[in-house]
Design a binder for these strands. Sequence first.
DNA 1: GCCGCGCCTTGATTTACATCAAGCTCCCCA
DNA 2: TGGGGAGCTTGATGTAAATCAAGGCGCGGC
Lengths: 237, 237
Amino acid sequence: MGKQIDIGRVLANLPLFQQLRESEIANLAAGTREIGLSKGRILFQKGCLLDGFYVTVYGQIKLAFSSPQGNEKVVSLVGPGQSFGEAVMFMERPCPVMAQALEDSRLLYIAKRGIFAAIDHDSAFARRLLAGLSMRLHGLIQDVEDYSLHSSTQRVIGFLLQLASTPASGSVICELPASKHVIASRLNLSPETLSRILHSLIESGLITVHGRRIVVQDVARLSRFDDLPHSSCAKGG
Amino acid sequence: MGKQIDIGRVLANLPLFQQLRESEIANLAAGTREIGLSKGRILFQKGCLLDGFYVTVYGQIKLAFSSPQGNEKVVSLVGPGQSFGEAVMFMERPCPVMAQALEDSRLLYIAKRGIFAAIDHDSAFARRLLAGLSMRLHGLIQDVEDYSLHSSTQRVIGFLLQLASTPASGSVICELPASKHVIASRLNLSPETLSRILHSLIESGLITVHGRRIVVQDVARLSRFDDLPHSSCAKGG
DNA sequence: GCCGCGCCTTGATTTACATCAAGCTCCCCA
DNA sequence: TGGGGAGCTTGATGTAAATCAAGGCGCGGC
């Protein structure tokens, strides 16, 4: 049932590779391996070296820290069309996180060799890689800001607003990309706390929740609901 | 008094540029501006676009978030020879942090144009940029792990161990790169908490502190002092 | 030498969130 | 149609670290 996929075509459709020449794509494809991963399977452990990076074709991969005490902190959820591991590949150091499939997934593993060749032959591609890594960095900085400066409720609201990407205002339906347990970890809070926060947002009439499906009644109002107990901003005169 | 510096020579000595050809260096130098900044001055605010990036020649720059409520969170301290702003430049999006001089400083501002030219002409340079950004990403991931999984005490210890870079063991003298207030923010804790933690480490005989100068009595012992109240790791049979 | 001002320390109190401990609910599967 | 279990909820309790509030100490200026 369609197990065999056309690696070249899949690669050529990824944003990162879309503008590469045929020859470069072929070169990449030659160094690309297909990987099937059933739900729950671990792709690599923290500490591994990578001689290439991964692209998710379908399914979902979780990147997470795991402390010796068994605690776990989800850093990133990777979905179809997204890649991961580039930084570890370029850095040539042990990977700081582990990767695990949250669903049955299919990945491509693209060897460093072809990437380096493409960089050599196409500097626009190099720039796209640089821009991609920069965006990744930006996302991480956002996370650090969130963890450092925002309350749990603010983080949850921020996450919901991001899901309801179509900004503007009005009501939006969105779906949690994973179980609440995983989302909680991603947001650096306990499952219990996430539950309580969602329910407080429900009580405030800002959202409704059915399983993973969340309806944001009014995006603008949700983004205004800053968790403030008192709105005494009478500064400036 | 030596205000005039030889931009080309300074550039050529930076790790990032060391292996570039003369012609590329000259090209970069042509698009480079020198910037003097006295202590406390703000280089750019959160939200700025950058059409180049910065290298610190001497002095020290603080990169930080500043929330509307006036809270501040230090993300990074950058010292001589280090650069910042590359990611923002490649990303072409507003900068997520502000930059402020903690000491009288001298910087170089290197225009994107020359960098892009160098990428086009020297793919090894492109790879060095990629490796550099990857390392930056790695550092940030480490921070996220620290904030999410480690206690305040563990973060402080981790920071001290990093300062006392020469790993191994024995006693090491190191110096805090900024005031305790700034270090506390960098480590995501209040100045009071940092003070208390340092004093508890002193009481445990692990370090001594004189102003910014800290003596780590025994690196190995410090890294073992995990903050654990009980060491009941009787697992494995 | 003395004053004044940051910077740091120290203690008392508060608080946001985690943890612990039951239950509940939905859904899969028999 | 009913049983079982994962995932979620809900309440009670605990706690790490923030905040609030005074002092002390060191250092540079006069």
